[in-house]
């Protein structure tokens, strides 16, 4: 049986105690919430922290409150199950409910948190392997090695941003709050990400992601489509989040499209959005928009199925997401 490496476990009772512990312990300590991402990674020795700072008991990280008019606050420690089933989110931010419900399995959603999903370690099938396997192939730069095994000539790591909720939070224009002994900062969620598989987050090691703010959502419709092989367990090999608002006359008032699992960070399809904004949607236009969005997808051979396939499916999924938001009568259908 694969087992965890030894560590000390610290159990703060308040958020400020937690931030203090993280600061004291330094980068060798890691926070753990649901543990559904961290613990398997630790069993594979992708992480061997000297100490874990448990966030489970922190009431400051709990709660979902607000309204579609003023926006909604989600404690980062809320489980994916509670996010996906909360009436406020199901009704007014359906894409987030869909994405949270699409993560892995019921058991993992019961333990895993929204904060943990946002900060999911980037994934790569050269990296998410046991210590034995990584030793066997000679390790990669993300842990214990010096090169990228996917693109050996590359100076950077190409591990994939694989969190289902992230592209959705991007299109919802969520903001996140980070807390440390040094203070607090609230940033647009996009600013949390860096285009680097090795250090994919701007979160400092002493910071705790404490809550997520969703802005008011009047008139917005949103959805999330996930490509994976099986109905559960699997991480996305493509995630498409889309949100839009239509004008009275049917034109697209505003639209946001973000792609997950196509790069080391969530990718916003700006060109595609600009092409659709203010337009009357037609099947031909949606095809163009989908093709523009797909230009942003640059998958590599480090996840399930082939690069070509994942690339080919991107415009199909973007168009289907837009079709869903525009209602069945707008369906642009098959070629």
């Amino acid at each position: 049986m694969l087992r965890l490496p030894p560590f000390r476990y610290l159990a703060p009772r308040t958020l400020s105690e937690a931030t203090r512990l993280l600061a004291e312990e330094g980068p060798a300590a890691m926070p753990v919430a649901g543990g559904t991402d961290l613990l398997p990674n630790m069993k594979r020795r992708q992480f061997t922290p000297a100490a874990l700072v448990g966030l489970r008991r922190l009431h400051e990280l709990k709660g979902i409150s607000g309204s579609p008019e003023v926006g909604v606050r989600i404690g980062a420690g809320e489980t994916l199950t509670s996010v996906s089933t909360h009436p406020l989110i199901r009704t007014h931010y359906p894409a987030l409910a869909l994405a949270a419900a699409a993560v892995s399995t019921p058991q993992l959603r019961n333990a895993g948190t929204i904060g943990g999903n946002i900060l999911l370690d980037t994934r790569c099938n050269y990296y998410n392997q046991t210590e034995f396997w990584r030793h066997s192939i000679g390790y990669c730069m993300k842990r214990d090695g010096s090169i990228c095994l996917v693109a050996p000539g590359s100076p950077r790591c190409w591990a994939i941003s694989s969190a289902d909720t992230v592209p959705v939070l991007v299109v919802l224009q969520a903001r996140v709050r980070l807390v440390s002994v040094r203070g607090e900062r609230e940033i647009p969620i996009q600013e949390l990400f860096r285009d680097d598989g090795m250090r994919p987050y701007t979160r400092e090691t002493d910071e705790i992601l404490s809550e997520i703010w969703l802005p008011p959502a009047p008139g917005w419709r949103s959805t999330y489509l996930k490509l994976r092989r099986r109905g559960s367990f699997d991480f996305p090999i493509l995630g498409v989040a889309a949100a839009l608002r239509r004008e009275q006359d049917g034109r697209i008032g505003d639209v946001r499209i973000a792609l997950g699992a196509v790069a080391s960070h969530p990718v916003e399809a700006e060109e595609a959005m600009a092409h659709l904004r203010g337009q009357q949607p037609t099947p031909a236009l949606l095809q163009e928009v989908a093709a523009l969005a797909a230009k942003r997808a640059r998958p590599l051979d480090n996840a399930d199925l082939t690069i070509t396939y994942r690339k080919q499916l991107t415009p199909v999924y973007v168009r289907r997401a837009l079709d869903l938001l525009l209602g069945a009568e707008q369906g642009s259908g098959a070629k």
């Binding site: 099938n125 392997q129 559960s232």
Partner: peptide
């Protein structure tokens, strides 16, 4: 791949779930 089992886990080696 490169002499190694590419997917030696039951996350990556796919076996059907109830939903499939």
């Amino acid at each position: 791949r490169k002499g190694r089992h590419k997917i030696p886990s039951i996350l990556d080696y796919k076996i059907p779930t109830t939903l499939d």
